[in-house]
């Protein structure tokens, strides 16, 4: 509760200092976000494609997201943006299948971030293994807006891990990969490593996890929030 309050105060403070309207509005909304159960909280599931795992060296080359309202993913809100990076995608192309020339034709990172934060206004974030992607977004914001914004996140990996711990289910390496968990919940197999597909996959997984937590009352989100 205290963490929530502190985080809100930080967001409002950042909003006042921020000169970019789209980010300021996001931060303002983030500071006073109403969080209820999954059916009554607007959400946005996000995934990034990266040239590598090191946020000091590597770059964002694609952003995908989709929004959830009233417990349903609105496919019309799907968005996929290729970002032009100045660095070669190198061997990471084997994972995300984006080639240098496609990346070169992409949007500027600033444009992508602008759209992302507009779409994320008034919404909780959903990410799978949030730490990595949030790290990259923070880094990008620093050079874009000169500030590091706050995020309130549902991390599907972390939630599933805690659920399994609580039920005393042993967790092995690889068990908590997005595709592996989805299989347990009977979700379709997707070709992984496209930012939009993974964002959708994460959104579906969040709905599946929420439906299982308690069949009578929908998932209370608060205990599962992570503040960045």
């Amino acid at each position: 509760m205290l963490q929530r309050w502190k985080h809100g105060r930080r967001c409002h403070g950042l909003a006042r200092r921020c000169s970019l309207p789209v980010l300021a509005e996001y931060l303002d909304a983030c500071g006073s976000l109403k969080i209820d159960d999954i059916e009554n909280t607007p959400l946005i599931a996000v995934d990034l494609e990266l040239t590598g795992l090191d946020k000091e060296q590597d770059q964002i080359i694609a952003i995908g997201w989709t929004q959830i309202d009233d417990g349903r993913i609105r496919l019309g809100s799907n968005r996929y943006l290729v970002i032009n990076a100045d660095k070669s995608v190198g061997s990471s192309a084997a994972i995300h299948e984006l080639m240098d020339h496609e990346v070169a034709q992409g949007e500027d990172l600033e444009v992508g971030l602008g759209e992302l934060f507009e779409a994320a206004r008034d919404r909780l974030w959903i990410l799978h293994h949030a730490g990595l992607d949030i790290g990259f977004i923070k880094k990008a914001c620093e050079s874009w807006a000169g500030i590091i914004p706050g995020f309130i996140v549902l991390d599907t990996l972390r939630i599933e891990y805690r659920l399994r711990k609580r039920r005393e289910i042993p967790v092995k390496q690889g068990d908590l990969q997005l595709g592996q968990i989805r299989e347990v919940y009977g979700l379709p197999g997707y070709t992984a490593h496209n930012a939009l597909t993974d964002a959708l996959a994460t959104a579906e997984l969040m709905l599946a996890i929420a439906s299982r937590l308690d069949s009578d009352s929908p998932l209370k989100l608060k205990p599962h929030l992570k503040f960045f």
């Binding site: 993913i73 496919l75 019309g76 979700l187 709905l207």
Partner: peptide, 14 residues
């Protein structure tokens, strides 16, 4: 049509 679609998840029995 696809843009109007809304995805929802229902556990068994729901």
């Amino acid at each position: 049509i696809a843009r109007k679609l809304e995805a929802a998840y229902y556990p068994q029995g729901k």
